[in-house]
């Protein structure tokens, strides 16, 4: 039977678009492929996706792409404009190659993005769903704490945390995560409030499932899509916050080629040597744009209402 369906529907593609999958793995692959197809169909989202893939590739192959050592100073070749002496994007005030610094800087950016993306939303999701599903005093306590965090502007709160913890990239990430989770908790709670009264939750309750199982196995998957969209859209802001902390000297410390710190050190030369601040600025702009485009597209792709029709 399985061989028949394979040959009927042209090999792999038929297998991936099968209407009646034959195993759990097969079903997951079909779902993944359908998601992939709608991503490809949405051109802007796909562009965003490609930018992020590019960022990852650049970070992985940084040693191959960089033309110079990013921290090697060459005081004979300071403040060179782009395309001189093999410096594609010129050099900064210490004679370091800007192109190579941006390439290596992508690793720092990716590090920040990955860490924040895997801590803040998960924590926010946990707080929000527990709060929304259990209700009562648990809800009140958790939401008031969330409100306290929400009451401060993100950068100011991050600044306060970093000053308390000490400057440095790890503390910057920690500070960003600490300030980023409350909106996710709010979204997750709002979603949970509508989901908890639905019939499919009632059905699993009647089958004797415990609270933790319902929250993790039944409510989380329903909150996931709006959260993924929100996180992707927030990534631009997170990169900017990290850059802002770097700019203020509270994030990555001077020799490390963090993009925000690079802008900061280029600021004093901006009138005569525009490229020093502009090039890392462009890098931040492109990556932020990539995340924004992807987030916008994911909102269309993952919207459960659309998926049902």
């Amino acid at each position: 039977m399985s061989i028949d369906t394979l040959s009927d529907d042209q090999g792999i593609k038929g297998w991936l678009t099968s209407e009646s999958p034959e195993s759990r793995f097969h079903a997951q692959m079909v779902q993944l492929y359908a998601g992939w197809q709608s991503l490809v169909a949405n051109r802007l989202a796909f562009l965003g996706f490609m930018i992020i893939v590019l960022l990852v590739l650049v970070a992985i192959f940084a040693p191959l792409l960089a033309t110079h050592d990013p921290s090697l100073q060459d005081l004979k070749a300071t403040l060179l404009p782009p395309f001189t002496d093999g410096h594609i994007l010129g050099t900064d005030d210490s004679g370091r190659d800007i192109w190579s610094r941006i390439i290596y800087g992508s690793r720092i950016t990716l590090f920040i993005v990955a860490l924040v993306a895997f801590t803040a939303p998960v924590f926010g999701l946990l707080v929000g769903t527990v709060s929304g599903y259990l209700g009562g005093w648990v809800d009140t306590v958790l939401m008031r704490i969330t409100d306290i965090f929400l009451a401060f502007p993100r950068l100011v709160l991050a600044l306060a945390f970093v000053s308390a913890l000490g400057a440095g990239i790890e503390n910057a990430i920690l500070a960003i995560s600490l300030t980023a989770w409350p909106p996710y908790a709010r979204i997750a709670r709002a979603e949970t409030l509508t989901i908890r009264n639905s019939d499919y939750i009632a059905a699993i309750q009647l089958q004797g499932a415990g609270r933790l199982r319902i929250i993790l196995g039944h409510i989380w998957p329903m909150c996931m899509s709006s959260l993924i969209v929100r996180v992707t859209l927030d990534m631009a802001g997170i990169i900017l916050t990290a850059a802002g902390l770097g700019f203020l000297g509270l994030g990555a410390q001077p020799p490390s080629p963090e993009w925000g710190a690079m802008i900061s050190s280029g600021r004093q030369f901006i009138h005569d040597h525009w490229w020093i601040a502009t090039m890392p600025g462009l890098a931040i702009f492109i990556v932020s744009l990539g995340f924004n485009l992807l987030g916008d597209g994911l909102r269309d792709i993952l919207d459960p209402k659309k998926a049902q029709s």
Binding site: A27, S198, Y200, Q207, H218, P221, Q308
Partner: peptide, 17 residues
Amino acid sequence: IQMVFQDPYASLHPRHS
């Protein structure tokens, strides 16, 4: 005791096989 609900569009978890 088990129960069958009114709206089959709302009583199955949309993301579960």
